[in-house]
Design a protein around this nucleic acid. Structure first.
Length: 227
DNA sequence: CCAGACGTTGTT
DNA sequence: GTCTGG
DNA sequence: CCAGACGTTGTT
DNA sequence: GTCTGG
């Protein structure tokens, strides 16, 4: 799955890679080496005006019927295989698709009742975009909250030894298609939600257990350590 | 019709 | 809100 | 995802 | 054990 990731590239690099301008009040681009569910992070969406926009949403999709924001903690990931069956994700899949900028993500390998964190990124250290969905939650007398989930799929051969699921990493050439709200061919959209297949372009390695605690947030968290 | 669920992962 | 199950 | 809390009343 | 918070 994907329950922790990083985004440490400067704002300018993110805007260039995703071809969008940031429209958000507040610090979205402090370097982050330990992004956890429940926090506000950059997402790329199509604005009403039709151009790509980067804004800040909360990780963990809060469905419109939720009584409180905690419901979002159950929805930090959405399975690609069942998006069209799940009530919570049907409309978001049709109308509210987004891309989540990242530099890499963490997976915990469980072995002999021991959990070890690993980091996965591109060898080139380029930015990557996770396929995501978002939702608007606006209960009476409360301020509206926009939130997102990261779509997961089967692990590719590189990630498989660590974990059997991984986030969907979109190809750069598919960004426009995925974000286009006019695009209603669900099968064509579904076809994009495959395990990342350029495994020779990826690196994965063991990192420090310090990443377990979300209050730790520093470049050392993504440095390789000996096994 | 109304009531009740609505999610993923990992572990057992 | 919307779908499934009874 | 993992870590950490998990309760109430009354008093300061 | 289960929920909340980051």
């Amino acid at each position: 799955m994907c329950g922790r990731y990083t985004l440490h590239s400067p704002k300018e690099d993110v805007e260039e890679h995703f071809e969008g301008k940031t429209e958000h009040s507040g610090d979205l681009f402090e370097p982050r080496y330990n992004i956890a569910p429940g926090t506000i992070n950059p997402v790329v969406v199509r604005s009403d005006a039709g151009h790509r926009m980067i804004t800040g949403y909360r990780w963990g999709l809060i469905p419109p019927w939720a009584d409180d924001e905690n419901t979002g903690y159950n929805m930090i990931n959405a399975r690609a295989e069942t998006l069209q069956e799940k009530k919570t994700y049907q409309k978001p899949f049709q109308y509210r698709r987004c891309i989540i900028p990242a530099n890499g993500f963490f997976e915990w390998k469980t072995e002999e009742r021991e959990k070890q964190p690993f980091y996965i990124r591109l060898l080139s250290e380029e930015l990557i975009g996770f396929a995501g969905l978002f939702e608007r939650w606006a209960p009476k007398n409360q301020e509206e909250v926009y939130s997102y989930t990261i779509i997961t799929t089967e692990a590719n051969a590189l990630v498989q030894p660590l974990h059997d699921r991984m986030p969907v990493i979109l190809k750069k050439e598919d960004y426009g298609f995925w974000l286009d709200p006019e695009q209603q061919d669900l099968d064509e959209l579904q076809a994009l939600l495959k395990p990342y297949d350029e495994i020779s372009h990826m690196a994965t390695y063991r990192v420090t257990d310090e990443v377990n605690k979300t209050k730790n947030d520093k470049p050392e968290l993504i440095q390789p350590i000996p096994k």
